[in-house]
Nucleic acid binder design. Structure first.
Length: 421
RNA sequence: GUGGAUAUGGCGAAGCGGUUAACGCACCGGAUUGUGGCUCCGGCACGCAUGGGUUCGAUCCCCAUUAUCCACCCCA
């Protein structure tokens, strides 16, 4: 069907885009305050980047990627997330050679082939930040604080910050072993996916939703129990920072980012009232990722949040965003002979900085005024008739219905002065 | 990939196996040939997602397809 958009995609119409721009501007402002600058990467990348950067055991790679071959025979993939691209850009553009840390943010469309439902689309939009080159817990706290500040400004209620630490290559092997040992007696009783995870990625079993699996996890060792001294210290410091910033959180030992290059801090912000897809933000530290993607080892930490889910949340909590400003003045044409001069006046006023409406349908004066009224315009200029032969136009105040005659050369100045009030 | 629900004009929403498919909103035009918001009048469905079938006859019954919504999986 030619008039049907692809499944799982959305058209954002003017009334929507006004709200998007408002949020985007808010995010840009926060980023500026935190010292984060925008990074723009391609919408598609070499498929191999995501295989490595996202991880080939993830659902994203296994079943959700939009992969295609271009005319040159390259395998490309529409980005399912932006962290891998950011790391690639950091390495490729040698940002590691400059001043560290490198603080970046991005926003834009991501693509995942999934069945759409509330809060989930095939093309969706993420805002995210990545901080490269800083291993300190202050960097973890900084990105978390940035995300939190956004939700705070929006006035959203009931957000739940979940926090965990998944350790590092020093302490994780022992934990992994301990978890496997703990679960091994029940291996046959775990759900099929968890049985697969058992060898490849046992940490992922922790956040399995299957009640059966959860039952066998009762009393299982946690990553927090197994942290090495460095990781323990790091995690304690992150929490100190969060407390200092008055950011509430709860420890969730089941929260994992299952891949090897994720280290230390993992966090997720949940909101229950936006449907089953309740995660509005997720992130963490990935000290192994830069190296995994072929760069010199460098620490990194970041998060991504889903814009559509933010809108769902605003909607659920009936939080209204300010409407986009309309036009300042509407230029109405009284008679055909005045059309050209009216058009000229509209253009002149625009060049003076005013937002000017003008009828391009050659409708009756009545219809023009009706339209101006529907647009909630404060002033209408009536061009034509006797006034125009005298070199002036009528300025109508739509609120009070008062009308005055103004010489053409004075129109801009008078309007500007009135609109400033 | 699996399951459930739904599918009538721009939007919301009635409707019945059988003459012209309610109504509301929006939109367009008009109501002393230069003026809006209220009121009044008028206009506005290639015909009820698409394709089959049942029937003398279907928008209303059946099947398939597609789409949308929701849920599972998973994630933003």
């Amino acid at each position: 069907m030619l008039t049907k958009r692809p499944r799982g995609t959305n058209d954002f119409l003017p009334e929507d885009t006004a709200k998007w721009q408002y949020l985007e501007n808010m995010l840009r402002g926060i980023c500026r305050q935190f010292g984060y600058a925008e990074l723009r990467t391609p919408i598609f990348e070499e498929t191999a980047l995501f295989l490595r950067g996202v991880g080939d055991t993830t659902d994203i790679v296994q079943k959700e990627m939009y992969t295609f071959e271009d005319a040159g025979g390259r395998s490309l993939t529409l980005r399912p997330e932006n962290t891998a691209s950011a790391v690639r850009a950091y390495v490729e553009n040698k940002l590691f050679a400059g001043q560290q840390p490198v603080r970046l943010f991005y926003m834009g469309p991501m693509f995942r082939y999934e069945r759409p439902q509330a809060g989930r689309f095939r093309q969706f939009h993420q805002f995210g930040v990545e901080c490269f080159g800083a291993a300190s817990p202050a960097a973890d706290a900084e990105v978390i604080a940035l995300a939190w500040e956004f939700y705070r400004r929006l006035g959203l209620q009931g957000l739940e910050m979940n926090l965990n630490s998944v350790g590092c290559p020093n302490c994780r092997p022992a934990y992994r072993q301990a978890l496997q040992d703990f679960l091994r007696p029940h291996l046959a009783e775990l759900c099929p996916t968890c049985q697969e995870r058992f060898e490849k990625n046992p940490l992922r079993i922790l956040d399995c939703k299957n009640p059966q699996c959860q039952q066998f996890l009762q009393g299982a060792p946690t990553t927090l129990d197994a942290l090495c001294d460095d990781c323990r210290e790091h995690f304690a410091a992150v929490q100190d920072y969060l407390q200092a910033a008055a950011i509430p959180y709860r420890l969730n030992t089941k929260l994992v980012r299952g891949l090897d290059y994720y280290t230390n801090t993992a966090f997720e912000i949940l909101l229950s009232d936006i449907g089953a897809q309740s995660a509005v933000c997720g992130g963490g530290r990935y000290n192994g990722l830069v190296e995994e993607l072929g760069g010199k080892p460098a620490p990194g930490v970041g998060f991504a949040l889903g814009m559509e889910r933010v809108f769902s949340a605003l909607n659920a909590q009936e939080i209204e965003l300010p409407a986009a400003p309309g036009i300042d003045v509407f230029v109405a044409v009284l008679d055909k002979q005045a059309q050209t001069q009216a058009f000229q006046l509209a253009c002149e006023l625009r060049s003076q900085g005013l937002a000017v409406g003008y009828d391009t349908l050659e409708r009756s004066l009545k219809a023009q005024l009706k339209y101006a009224d529907s647009q909630k315009v404060a002033y209408v200029l009536l061009v034509g008739g006797d006034e125009l032969t005298r070199g002036s136009v009528a300025l109508r105040d739509m609120q009070s219905s008062e009308q005055i005659e103004l010489p053409l050369p004075e129109v801009g100045a008078v309007l500007t002065a009135r609109l400033l009030k």
